[in-house]
């Protein structure tokens, strides 16, 4: 079996997903037996033009240039992975979609006349995505899992079920039952219930679980005393553009 030629690309994002990928630590050498890095600016001077067996793309698409680039990468890639929430749902930076472009630009730049940005979109708004690897950032193990599965030619085994599964198996007390606005019941597992294990509510960074019952959770949150504004903000934070949450995130 030949090695996979991979490209890792960054769009509008914080590079955290790439860092998570680098956190393979001592497994890095084993990983390099599976892949040839053709393009990954963070780790290599090589700037190959593909074609890539596997492209891992971090970030959302938020400028006219990026629209062209993602289409270009797609055309050179056999399998394209949306790496992280920005690539999958638009992510944190998509919260700017809920304000006017000019208003947002003024908040950040002194002289916004040279800024040319578009509405923040996930990758699949512009191109076909083969594998979605959500998380902010995705856990290192799930990234390795995807690379391995692509090498083996099998569909990746990633959870679609909610965080509650991992949380319950960690024998945590249910924060929702204790009256805290946890998002666990509607959020995809994969993190190992990282926050609830530390006594903190799930913030929703893995995006919606399959077939989430958001209506029921919203009823709970209202009982707890969350305002409509707080509810909207919680659903917007990571995956407001997702088909599962956009009904409530308000765009």
């Amino acid at each position: 079996m030949g090695k996979l030629r991979i490209g890792v690309f960054k769009f509008t994002s914080c590079s955290g997903c790439q860092l998570s990928m680098l956190r393979v630590n001592e497994q890095l050498l084993n990983l390099l037996n599976l892949i040839d890095i053709d393009y990954w600016v963070m780790v290599s001077d090589v700037k190959g033009k593909g074609p890539y067996d596997l492209a891992l793309v971090e970030g959302s698409v938020s400028t006219p240039e990026e629209i062209g680039e993602i289409k270009e990468i797609r055309s050179r890639s056999r399998i394209l992975v949306a790496l992280g929430d920005c690539a999958t749902y638009g992510g944190l930076n998509s919260i700017r979609n809920y304000m006017s472009q000019r208003e947002v630009e003024k908040l950040v730049y002194e002289n916004p006349t040279s800024i040319r940005s578009t509405t923040v979109r996930p990758l699949d708004y512009y191109v076909d995505v083969d594998i979605y690897l959500s998380g902010c950032p995705p856990d290192t193990s799930t990234i390795v899992e995807v690379i391995k599965d692509v090498a083996l030619g099998v569909p990746p085994r990633l959870p679609k079920y909610p965080v509650c599964v991992e949380c319950k198996l960690s024998e945590n007390e249910c924060l929702l039952i204790k009256g805290e606005p946890c998002m666990g019941p509607v959020i995809k597992a994969g993190c190992g219930a990282l926050c609830p294990n530390l006594g903190r509510i799930c913030e929703g960074c893995y995006g919606p679980a399959v077939d989430p019952n958001a209506e029921s959770l919203l009823d709970k949150w209202r009982e707890i005393g969350l305002s409509e504004r707080e509810i909207v903000c919680k659903l917007r934070k990571y995956a407001g553009l997702s088909k599962e949450f956009k009904r409530w995130s308000g765009l």
Partner: peptide, 13 residues
Amino acid sequence: AKKCFSCGTCSLV
């Protein structure tokens, strides 16, 4: 079912 989250808690515990 309107209330249920399908979170699996009932069967896991």
